[in-house]
C-alpha cells in the first residue's frame, strides 16, 4: 500500500474538521470556492471508499457574476434546485414553513455542485479524490478544457457547474478537495498547508 495509507488513521471529529477546512480557505491567498474532506473507510467487501467527511462552502469572490451565471440555468432547473433546498431546509429545521428568503434565492452552480457532492463517494481509486488517494499524489486540474477532457466524471461535472480548478490532496485518512471558479495555477504552498493543517 502507498506509505500514507499505511499510517494509522486518526478520525477527526466534525467540529475539528470544519475548523480546519475554514482555516484553510480563509488563510490562503487564492480564491477557493469550497473545501471538502473526503473520509476514507472500507465497504462491506473490504474495498477502500472515500465518502463525505465534511465541507466548507465559502462562495465566489464575485457574487454578482455567480448570480448571473445561476440565472443562465433554465427556469425548470432553478425550480428544481429551490425545491430540493426547501425540502432539505424542512428536514433540518423540522418545519415545513417556507418563509425563508434564503430558500427562494437563486441556487448558484457552485452551491449546487457542493450540495450534490454530499451524496457522492469514490471506490477503489475512482474519481479525482480516489485517484489522489490511491496514488498518494496530489491531483491538480486547472482550466475548463482540462476539466472537460478529464476521464473523471467529477471533473467534467465541476466544469459544467462553473469550476475552473479542482485540486485533490491525499492525506493519511482521506483527501482534501478544493474547488474554484477561478483559474489557479499549481502551488506546493497549498499542498504543504493542507498537510500541516490536517496530518
Amino acid at each position: 500500500p502507498p506509505p500514507q495509507q499505511s499510517q494509522p488513521s486518526v478520525p477527526l471529529n466534525q467540529d475539528s474538521l470544519q475548523q480546519r477546512l475554514q482555516a484553510l480557505l480563509e488563510g490562503v491567498r487564492n480564491c477557493w470556492t469550497y473545501a471538502i474532506f473526503w473520509q476514507s473507510s472500507y465497504d462491506y467487501a473490504g474495498a477502500a471508499v472515500l465518502g463525505w467527511g465534511d465541507g466548507y462552502y465559502k462562495g465566489e469572490e464575485d457574487k454578482e457574476k455567480a448570480k448571473s451565471k445561476a440565472s443562465l440555468s433554465t427556469i425548470a432547473e432553478q425550480q428544481h434546485r429551490k425545491k430540493v433546498l426547501r425540502e432539505l431546509n424542512s428536514l433540518i429545521s423540522g418545519s415545513t414553513a417556507t418563509t425563508d428568503d434564503a430558500v427562494d434565492e437563486e441556487v448558484t452552480d457552485t452551491e449546487w455542485f457542493f450540495l450534490v457532492s454530499m451524496t457522492q463517494s469514490f471506490v477503489n481509486g475512482n474519481g479525482l479524490p480516489g485517484q489522489a488517494f490511491f496514488n498518494s499524489c496530489p491531483v491538480w486540474v486547472t482550466g475548463t478544457d482540462r476539466l472537460a477532457n478529464s476521464t473523471c466524471e467529477r471533473a467534467k461535472q465541476g466544469r459544467v457547474f462553473g469550476l475552473q480548478t479542482i485540486v485533490c490532496i491525499p492525506l493519511a485518512n482521506g483527501v482534501v478537495e478544493l474547488g474554484s471558479s477561478e483559474f489557479i495555477i499549481q502551488s506546493s504552498d497549498l499542498v504543504n498547508k493542507v498537510r500541516a493543517l490536517f496530518n
Partner: peptide, 26 residues
C-alpha cells in the same frame, strides 16, 4: 421526502445557515 444520512446533517445544516447569512448580507 429526502433522506440524508445522519453524518451529513451537520454539514448540511451549516451550509444552509451560512447561505442564509450570505443572502441577508447581499
Amino acid at each position: 421526502a429526502v433522506a440524508v444520512p445522519q453524518a451529513r446533517k451537520a454539514s448540511l445544516a451549516r451550509f444552509l445557515e451560512k447561505r442564509k447569512e450570505r443572502v441577508s448580507n447581499t
